[in-house]
Design a protein around this nucleic acid. Structure first.
Lengths: 232, 232
DNA sequence: ATTAATGATTGACATATATCAATATATAAA
DNA sequence: TTTATATATTGATATATGTCAATCATTAAT
């Protein structure tokens, strides 16, 4: 890793998890943004952004994991994704209605920086590279949402549970063996099913020797078969 | 309507359905874009953009309706939305992988303008207003996708059918009585269910006096009850 | 150590929804 | 007009999934 004057301060630096959004910024612009930030720490379970409230700052994740979910009026949630270091969170409110459209809640201890949207607005207006990077980011998110929509509405339970496990393996824990920091209800919300059904399907996979599961410890044994289930 | 030199030429003019995206453009920039456009006409059933192919142009809808859907490997489709005059279509490929991630197919005769993405790129880089408008557009689409995801995964059939009818009433035909230019399969794809189930649920609503339906003619009689069904 | 509280697991059961097959209706072709 | 073709509708049936209640495991509190 190259030497960096921001080290230890914040993830919006020149280091590993710098969001690509900041790539095109001049050093002056970046320093300005950096100096305006507020570093905050959240404990597990704490709400970072609440759906329906005003969007005044966006969050830039430094450490830890959070879940992002849509709260339905009837109480059931749909868990949209799990996010960690490098993620930029604005809950789709930017340049629309300045309202958070999703709730973000800490799963582990979370450290992040808050940057006022008004600081960001000004910068965005003077910096085309950043605007284009943001459009790119938004389009990628839309592509994800669309495939999620198709998978959740058309796949059977086994396929949806397999998708959740593959998502955790590939995108979150990046290993075949991991310790969950999500409840069974969270996992069910991610697969759009009841927690009982999720547990039952998980058990079937365990019985088939595809996984080892004990409470929060998960180990994927037969990746090929898991992928097979995901593909139907 | 104010006088306009573009009248009769193309929807990306100063008239009614000018996409908000073009609001911030200078007259010179706009004329440039306008002169580079290609006006094309499609017949009902024709594919305008095919999922998986290269994104070289984006489309600006002038007249008629098209359906936009995601094609699943197994053959089932999920119909994302119906679009008409003023809609700007780039299938989420812009600034990502330059691939169409959705298929767009004409439902009626469709007239639209094609604008090369490279012309657009250059303009976007020099025009902050347009970039911000595009981000706004993208965020609105994401909000839509998220509520659709929640509704399609958690509502029962009656609720989903009611949602489809309300969508057609409010956003597409803008009237309580309309003639569909969608097949029953299309409607089912919009509600994420089988066409038989859609037909049966529709029949129940007809029997309950909420609607009058005969083939493609639909009339909403009891709007209040339809909204009630949508809310569960 | 005992109790309480929370989340996970299992079982029994009801039901919403898909599937398959048959028929009807409308549209196009001859 | 008659036939062919596509789409819509209805019916019977199977099954995937949710719901409710009971039990178990784990952690926190006293």
């Amino acid at each position: 890793m190259k030497e960096c004057k921001y080290i230890g301060l914040c993830s919006i630096c020149c280091c590993e998890n710098k969001p690509s959004l900041f790539n095109g910024l001049s050093e002056d612009d970046f320093d300005e943004l950096h100096s305006e930030r507020k570093e905050i720490s959240f404990k597990p379970g704490e709400i970072i952004f609440k759906q329906g409230t005003a969007l005044t700052h966006f969050a830039c994740f430094r450490e830890g994991f959070a879940k992002i979910y849509y709260e339905r009026p009837e109480g059931s949630n749909i868990l949209v994704n799990i996010v960690g270091s490098g993620y930029l969170c604005e809950s789709m409110g930017m340049f629309t209605d300045n309202i958070h459209h999703l709730t973000t809640q800490a799963l582990t201890t979370v450290k992040l920086c808050l940057i006022a949207t008004k600081n960001f607005d000004a910068l965005l207006r003077s910096n085309q590279e950043m605007a284009i990077e943001l459009i790119s980011m938004k389009n990628k998110q839309s592509i994800n949402l669309t495939t999620k929509l198709a998978n959740l509405t058309y796949k059977n339970m086994a396929g949806r549970v397999a998708d959740v496990l593959l998502y955790l393996r590939n995108d979150i824990y990046k290993a075949d063996e991991f310790v969950l920091n999500l409840s069974r209800q969270d996992l069910a919300d991610l697969a759009a099913m009841s927690k009982e059904s999720f547990i039952r399907t998980l058990k079937e996979m365990r019985d088939a020797g595809i996984l080892e599961v004990h409470r929060d410890d998960v180990k994927i044994i037969k990746l090929r078969e898991l992928k097979q289930l995901s593909a139907n």
